[in-house]
Design a binder for these strands. Structure first.
Lengths: 189, 189
DNA sequence: GTCTATAGTGGGATAGAC
DNA sequence: GTCTATCCCACTATAGAC
């Protein structure tokens, strides 16, 4: 019974196509065809192809920023914050894997202003994550590895989870969270 | 003193551009301009834009297959094989980060035959990796986590290392190998 | 809100001179 | 091996009828 606006439908269809072929390889005709209408009709709802991309990416980036803010406010240890961050990524992956593909691969095709905004958000997010890791190392809660290696190896796994989650399909989210937290934090040996 | 063939130069320039913007967003005019010649001149050396992509991706995929074969032949434990695989990916990343970007993001833009060939190679590679992990679990050398979660979390880190390696720049390769092996295998706590 | 028709641009690729 | 000139096609986007 949800009255999805036409614009939201366009964005949803487009995000699927962007995930499959990348933003640049998807034409507005492809998007229109996926909706069963003509390309020209899209322009009653959107300003252009680029607007779809910016909405997808910036809305999702704001969700990550919001999730990070919530976790930073919690009175828990650095290690527990990292666990919460892993869960945040998994929840977003499960619900928004298409937009994640665009955020990861096609951010550079937004307009210049949006690119700057996005890069600033991403850097702030990474800086917060890095500080949590450093704090964990200071407290002796984490191993004294290069913080950048830890940050990268966790983030790269979480960022590309969307590629893999659909392929393997219905792996239960709670099992995924439990095993992913275990593997990323406690290793495999 | 290396007499690089003109074709190899084209492939090298193109791979850099593909890495920055993705295959579909790069035009043959872009590639020609990067070489200081006109687009038409490229066609004396290559059959078309798609040929560049296929050479980049398939040559690199064969390198991974070759590396995997060599490691499978070694008389070492599953855990040591995993360490060797991590080192293989790091070596390839350091030397071929541009082609890695194409392999990760643009394989679907090759011709249909090349796509099939590539997907088959990737699946064989992953199957070999998965079997090493399963063997490690059977032997009690690895924790009994979901093998797919272990496979994915290691591979996704290694596959996207190229994005991050250049940004952080001159992190010494040997330090990177040591810390990356430690983080991926022994975790962070 | 969707259509047809079309403008305007830029894409991959080829022919043929030098 | 590179050039100029050009073909042909697909692209994003707009105008205006319904």
């Amino acid at each position: 019974m949800k009255t999805t606006s036409r614009k939201a439908e366009i964005i949803a269809e487009a995000s699927q196509l962007f995930k499959e072929k990348g933003y640049s390889a998807v034409t507005v005709r492809d998007i229109a065809e996926a909706m069963g209408i003509k390309a020209a009709s899209l322009y009653n709802h959107i300003e252009g192809k680029q607007e779809i991309l910016s909405i997808l990416i910036l809305d999702l980036a704001k969700e990550f920023i919001k999730g990070m803010e919530d976790i930073l406010k919690m009175k828990i240890s650095p290690l527990q914050k990292i666990e919460k961050l892993i869960e945040l990524h998994i929840d977003i992956t499960v619900n928004q894997s298409e937009a994640l593909a665009a955020l990861n691969n096609d951010w550079m095709h937004m307009g210049a202003d949006d690119v700057h905004h996005f890069v600033a958000m991403r850097e702030a997010y990474e800086e917060n994550f890095r500080n949590i890791i450093k704090e964990g190392i200071s407290l002796g809660q984490l191993q004294p590895r290069h913080p950048e290696v830890i940050l990268f190896s966790i983030l790269s796994t979480l960022r590309t989870l969307y590629v893999w989650y659909q392929k393997r399909g219905k792996l239960d989210v709670n099992i995924l969270k439990r095993d992913m937290v275990a593997v990323l934090i406690r290793g495999i040996v």
